[in-house]
Design a protein around this nucleic acid. Structure first.
Lengths: 249, 249
DNA sequence: ACTTTAAGTGTAAGATATACACTTGTAAAA
DNA sequence: TTTTACAAGTGTATATCTTACACTTAAAGT
């Protein structure tokens, strides 16, 4: 490769992964205790450094794979963090990615060997550096994206029940949803396939299992159709479909 | 600063700015003809390299300032581009920012000395490297953000008319809007202050000038109120307030 | 005085979101 | 075997929001 730009500074580029999972009705993050200095022993996100011959997406996937053994995971770039003092170890640019995974016993064991743990969003410990800010930002991004794309299914088993799905959406948006309205809305999309099987884990009656119709969804996306769910972030106090509601004035 | 991580690769980190303006009823980008190799003479975004002692935001602001002389500009990080071959000059990570500026004669002259030109979104030339992808992504981000935040005002003079504002929103979302509905919606926010002055540039009758009430907006933001305008991206064929509209099935 | 041009204004109908309570199926306990 | 307990599953009416739509007004130029 030809070489221009020789005179400019070069930088360490890190990747940090915010790994979301859903388990026991709670949204969780896969966190680990850092095994090297600086900040050894403290809670952090899984991270690593960018190599010369890998793209950002490739590096992020590699790092996720090291921790979970998983490939082909839903992963999106979140944001680049570049404050000078963000990492006391050295001036490092960190590009954060978030991943959505289906928590599973196998992955769980592999993660454990790295000293990683699934921790509920509502019980997060303090994290090193700017990792808590990354998590906050990832949650906002997850909420926003959930309302535009059917990504919830990335966090559930292939077969899931409607009560599970509703509980997931409730965890993401931090708000109770009406069962009838939720079911009506989600079934109207035509993107769920009802199976002839029930899951009896959580009730005597049992709830029918469904699966997400990825093929149909992709064909809709190509046609320009749009998935849209009203998912409010926990921050919103009062909202209107118009612009801004000003009942007080 | 202590030094850990010594053994990892270091990378060139660039910043590229997608600079939006609004003029003559059109959304425009400030582009320039590249003055150095590789790809000398081709159209590109304004860019530069990250220095050792500046944050990403600082570097992006510096680069914008070099071209326009402006400071305190609305600027947001867009995305980090890191494909290995994206810049034939060297392996470079580029972090793209987009900026919204009020086009003004002074800036226009400074920009010209750099060989920069304001070019309408609808007449963009091919750009070097992945810059066209950056622009496409920036437009999507602008559309999305416009529907959640009142950022249109960053592109207009401090005093503006409602027809101007409507025309801006139409340019951003690529769609005609109904005059009465638009005015109703935007005035209901209570965020516009009507002035006792008219602008007679574009009609004999003249249109009243307004200004945006930043102070009131900030107080709303603190209270958690939300600005929301229905701005559709040009890509969306058919949309519904529910989830996905499936009238065809 | 007449013409031209864009600014400015209100309402009714249709679509969408929301609120709400009882029945069903099954397992476990009595 | 009957009863109890528990979550799954189902429909409608009202309120709210979005949309479509046409005439009047002000001022400059002829």
């Amino acid at each position: 490769m030809t070489r221009y730009y020789k005179e400019y500074d070069h930088h360490l580029v890190a990747l940090d992964c915010i790994i979301f999972g859903f388990d026991e009705g709670e949204l969780k993050l896969l966190l680990l205790k850092r095994k090297f200095e600086p900040a050894q022993g403290e809670w952090s996100l899984m991270g690593g450094f960018l190599g010369k011959s890998e793209s950002l997406d490739e590096a992020a996937s590699r790092i996720l794979n090291q921790l979970t053994g998983l490939t082909n995971i839903y992963m999106k770039q979140l944001f680049a963090f570049g404050d000078i003092e963000r990492d006391p170890g050295a001036r490092t640019i960190s590009i954060a990615y978030y991943a959505l995974i289906k928590i599973d016993e196998n992955d769980r064991k592999l993660a454990e060997t790295h000293g990683a743990e699934w921790i509920s969003i509502s019980k997060l410990p303090g994290l090193i550096f700017d990792h808590s800010i990354m998590v906050e930002k990832a949650l906002e991004a997850l909420r926003r994206r959930t309302s535009r794309e059917p990504i919830g299914f990335e966090l559930l088993p292939v077969k899931f029940t409607l009560p599970q799905l509703q509980s997931l959406y409730e965890s993401i948006c931090g708000e109770q949803l009406d069962k009838r309205n939720f079911r009506k809305q989600i079934l109207e999309t035509g993107l769920l396939v009802k199976l002839d099987e029930k899951d009896k884990e959580s009730s005597k009656k049992g709830a029918f299992l469904y699966k997400f119709d990825h093929k149909k969804y992709n064909s809709y996306v190509e046609k320009g159709f749009l998935f849209q769910l009203k998912v409010k972030s926990g921050q919103i106090i009062k909202e209107n479909n118009g612009i801004l509601l000003d009942k007080s004035a």
